[in-house]
Simulated scan of single mutants.
Amino acid sequence: MSVYLCSDLHGDFKGFKRLLDKVAFKPNSNKIYILGDIIDRGKENIALLEYIMSLYESGCASVIKGNHELFLERYLRGELSSKQWSAWGGFGTFNELCKLSSHQKARIFDFVSTLPHFIELEAASKPCVLTHAGLMADFLVENNGKISVLKSLQKALNFDEFEFLISPDIHYMSHAELARLDKYLFVGHVPTFQLDINGQNYIIKNEFYTDLDSGSGYSGGRVCALRLDDMKEFYA
Results as ranks from 00 to 15, higher is better:
S2F: 00
F91I: 14
Y172M: 14
F109E: 04
G188I: 02
N198I: 05
V149E: 02
K105A: 10
F13S: 07
D160E: 09
K99W: 06
E69H: 06
H117E: 08
N28F: 06
W85C: 04
G78Q: 10
L178W: 11
S81H: 09
M136V: 05
K22T: 09
C128Y: 04
A176D: 14
V187P: 03
R77K: 15
F193I: 14
N144F: 08
D211K: 10
N45L: 01
G221W: 04
F118S: 14
S58K: 03
N67P: 07
N144R: 13
A137S: 13
V112Q: 07
G215R: 04
F208C: 12
L48M: 06
Y202L: 15
K43P: 05
L55H: 00
I147L: 11
Y75V: 15
L226N: 09
F16H: 01
D230N: 13
G59R: 01
A106C: 06
S29F: 01
Q104P: 07
G42I: 01
R227H: 09
R74L: 13
V149N: 03
C128W: 07
I108W: 03
Y202K: 14
E44H: 12
V23R: 04
Y4F: 15
F234G: 12
D138K: 13
N67F: 02
S58I: 03
W88L: 15
K105G: 11
L153D: 01
V63I: 04
G220E: 09
F94A: 12
Q200E: 15
N144L: 12
R180M: 12
F111Y: 01
K26A: 10
D138C: 06
I166E: 14
P27Y: 04
S125V: 09
L49S: 04
K17L: 14
D196W: 07
A176P: 08
